[in-house]
């Protein structure tokens, strides 16, 4: 073991001595010489050492389980490793490396070369007589092949048949259930509370599914003409999806203490579109441009809420011509 160490030491000294040896005649320097800075070298060595230590610390923190706040210690260790490395390089840049100021002419355009490129192109077509015909044919072929390459993208979605955009799972007689699939009784809906309901036996993860239920006093209800009887015992149902950008209505503004002059509002927390449940879901504030679609309700013999039909209009964000479309089941 000791002999091995001695050999390593000898080899090291020999190498070091060889590097110091004045070499043969060398061409003039390209990079100018600078004064050595042994202290800066030590600083760089120290910083590199710290970087290595931090990296080892990272491995150690990673290896030991059940360290509290492991994420934080991992971040500190890795951050320090890179930070010390950065510091070492910046000290080296300032003290160990010559900072030359070089000059150079900016490049210029090459009009001659550019013209030669153009000539190669034009002269290559020297044998062509029906240039416009050929160009046209090439254009037609390229366009057709390009279209052929793009057309399969239509498989991505139903581009033309937009029937699915107006289809909802609601139809006359369908029961309203809560998120666990339990039917909702009309007696469970209390004033000043917001309930979310879904159609029974239908996928809840579609824009047409969720509705909000709120109970209002009979004298509060001013539903648009033609919606007589859409409320059941003062309970009204609206699509839960905002007609502005498709977020879910998450807030029910219904002041319980003064000032209570503001009418109740169904609010979307994305852009604060606010809809009035008393007047058929009309927009009272925010960017939405279309009323919340209302779902007609009825109460069956066992006191459960059921839909009495489909929504008053398409559910979710609006699109071109949305007001001319009717919903289907």
């Amino acid at each position: 073991m000791r002999r091995l160490w001695r050999w390593i030491l000898v080899a090291f000294v020999w190498r070091a001595a060889r590097e110091e040896e004045p070499g043969e005649e060398r061409p003039p320097r390209i990079v100018p010489d600078g004064a050595p800075s042994p202290r800066a070298e030590l600083v760089v060595v120290a910083l590199l050492g710290l970087a290595a230590l931090s990296a080892v610390a990272f491995i150690a923190v990673y290896a030991f389980d059940r360290i509290p706040d492991q994420t934080q210690y991992l971040g500190i260790a890795l951050g320090c490793a890179f930070g010390f490395l950065a510091a070492a390089l910046i000290v080296a840049a300032h003290h160990l490396v010559v900072t030359e100021e070089l000059e150079e002419e900016y490049g210029r355009p090459h009009p001659g070369e550019a013209d030669r490129v153009a000539r190669v192109v034009t002269e290559s077509g020297g044998r062509l007589r029906r240039r416009r015909l050929l160009a046209g044919a090439a254009g037609v072929a390229t366009t057709a092949i390009g279209l052929a390459a793009i057309v399969p993208a239509a498989s991505l979605g139903p581009i033309y048949n937009l029937g699915r955009f107006t289809r909802t799972p609601w139809r006359r007689g369908r029961r309203l259930v809560d998120q666990n699939g339990r039917p909702i009784r009309a007696a469970e809906i209390h004033p000043a509370e917001l309930f979310t309901a879904y159609p029974e036996h239908a996928d809840p993860e579609q824009l047409g599914a969720p509705v909000v239920l709120v109970k209002l006093e009979p004298d509060q209800l001013h539903l648009p003409p033609g919606r007589k009887g859409w409320a059941a015992d003062g309970i009204v149902a609206y699509s839960k999806i905002c007609t502005h950008a498709g977020c879910a209505i998450g807030l029910y503004r219904t002041p319980l203490f003064p000032p209570v002059d503001k009418p109740p509002g169904l609010v979307c927390p994305c852009h604060y579109s606010t809809f009035d449940p008393e007047t058929g879901g009309t927009v009272v504030y925010g960017p939405a441009g279309r009323a919340l679609p209302q779902l007609p309700l009825t109460i069956d013999g066992s006191g459960n809420l059921r839909a009495a039909g489909n929504f008053s209009g398409p559910v979710g964000p609006s699109w071109w011509g949305v007001r001319n479309r009717r919903v289907s089941s």
């Binding site: 934080q72 951050g79 490395l85 390089l89 080296a92």
Partner: peptide
């Protein structure tokens, strides 16, 4: 070394933020 120093400084800042 300046550029590499900046690179590692960016790495350091991002991992410190991340941690």
């Amino acid at each position: 070394p300046r550029s590499l120093g900046l690179m590692f400084a960016v790495f350091a800042a991002l991992f410190l933020l991340g941690g």
